[in-house]
Amino acid sequence: MKIVFIGLTVSSSWGNGHATTYRGLLRELSALGHEIYFLEHDKPWYSSNRDFSSPEDFHLIFYESVYKLRQNFESLIRKTDMVIVGSYVPEGVSVCRWVLNIAEGVKAFYDIDTPVTLHKLDNDDDEYLSKDLVPLFDIYLSFSGGEVLQLLESTYGARKAKALYCSFDPGIYYPMDVEKKWLLGYLGTYSDDRQPTVDSLLAEASKKISDQKFVVAGPGYPEGMAWPANVERIDHLPPELHRKFYNEQIFTLNVTRQAMIRLGYSPSVRLFEAAACGVPIISDYWKGLTDLFEKDKEIFIARNNDEMMDILKYTTQEQRIQLGNAARQKVLLAHTAAHRARELVAYYEELASLEQY
C-alpha cells in the first residue's frame, strides 16, 4: 500500500510533539512493507532546528508553498491508496480541499490536536480545518479517544472517527541505570494554560523541599521568568536526550493543556515516553486518564500541591519502582508505534472492504 502524509513536521521536534509521533508511525508502517511519503511545508523555524533528516524508512519531501505542492505532487496524491492530512498543516484548509478534490484513495484527517481543533471549530477559527470539511473525509483519526469519537461523529459530522493515539519507540525509550539528578522534572513547551499547574505542582514543591533539585525543560518560556534557586532550566531538549532526561528523575510530572482537560481522553506523547522509561509519573487529572493507567498502581495523580507533597514525601522507593515498572508494561502492551501502525492499516482495510476504493 502507498500512503502519503501531509503533516506539520517530521524533520524538527522544536516546539512540537508532532515530529516524534510521525517518525515512529512512519517507520513502523514501512516495516510492514508499505511505501510511505511525508510532505512537509519547508518553514524556517523548523529548517533552522532540524534534528532528523534523510530517513531510510520513508520518503521525506519538502515543498516551498501550497502552489508548489499542487504543481509537483498532484499525480502522487491522486493515485495513492491513502492520503492523510495532519492538523496544523500551514494553509491546511486549502490543502484539505485540494486533497479531497483529487485523491482517488482513502482520504483521512489525522488530528494530533483534537481538543484544540474542536475549540477552534466552535469559535469559527479555520486555521487548518473548517467545519464543512470534517464530513468530507472518509475517516477522522483522532489524538483523543473515548467519548470524543462519538462527539466527532454526532456533532461535527465525521463519517467515521477512530482513535489513533500518539505512541513511543521501545528501542529509544527504556530504563537506564543512571544516577538520579532531580527529585521531580517536567518536559514541555511553555503554554499559558499549563504554567499555573507547573507552578503549583513543581515550583511550589521545590520551595518546600529546598534541599532537593528540580528541573523544567522545554522552549518558549518567557525570558527572565523567575524560578526557585533549586529548579534547573533547560531550553530545547532534542529527542535523543529525552530518555536520559527521564531516567535521571525520581519522579516526572505530566501537565495537560486546558482544552485537553476539558475534552478528556487525550494522552500526550510525553506520557507514553516517560512511562516507557519506567520513571513514576505524577499527572494532573483529566477524564480518561484512569482508563489508560490505573491510579496509584501505574500512575500518581496530583490535583493540588498538597497531594503532590504527599506523593513526594511518603512514597517509598519500592512503591516507586513497582509503579514505574507497571506503567512501562502497560505502554509496551498497547502504545508502541508498531501498535499504531497496525491500527492505521486495520482502519484502511475496514474502509477498503466496503469496496469504495
Rank of each mutant, 00 (worst) to 15 (best):
D122M: 11
I281F: 08
S191D: 11
K208G: 00
V198H: 01
G264Q: 05
L237V: 14
T336I: 08
C277P: 04
L129G: 01
I172F: 04
H236K: 05
S30C: 06
S268W: 00
L202I: 00
Y190C: 08
A274E: 12
P90N: 10
Y314A: 11
G146V: 08
H41E: 11
Y174K: 12
G86V: 08
W45I: 07
Q212S: 14
Y67T: 13
Y140P: 05
Y165T: 13
N230C: 01
D235E: 14
Y63W: 03
V345E: 14
R243K: 13
L121R: 10
L312N: 01
E248T: 04
F245S: 03
Q356R: 11
N325M: 08
E35R: 12
Q195L: 11
G157C: 09
H242W: 07
T20P: 00
E153D: 12
V279M: 10
T155C: 10
E349T: 08
D193V: 04
L271C: 10
E153I: 07
R70C: 13
A31G: 04
I250R: 14
E204N: 02
V10H: 03
V4S: 13
L39Q: 07
V66S: 15
K131S: 15
Y156F: 15
V231F: 05
R257A: 14
A346M: 06
G92P: 02
D192Y: 04
V93R: 01
Y348D: 05
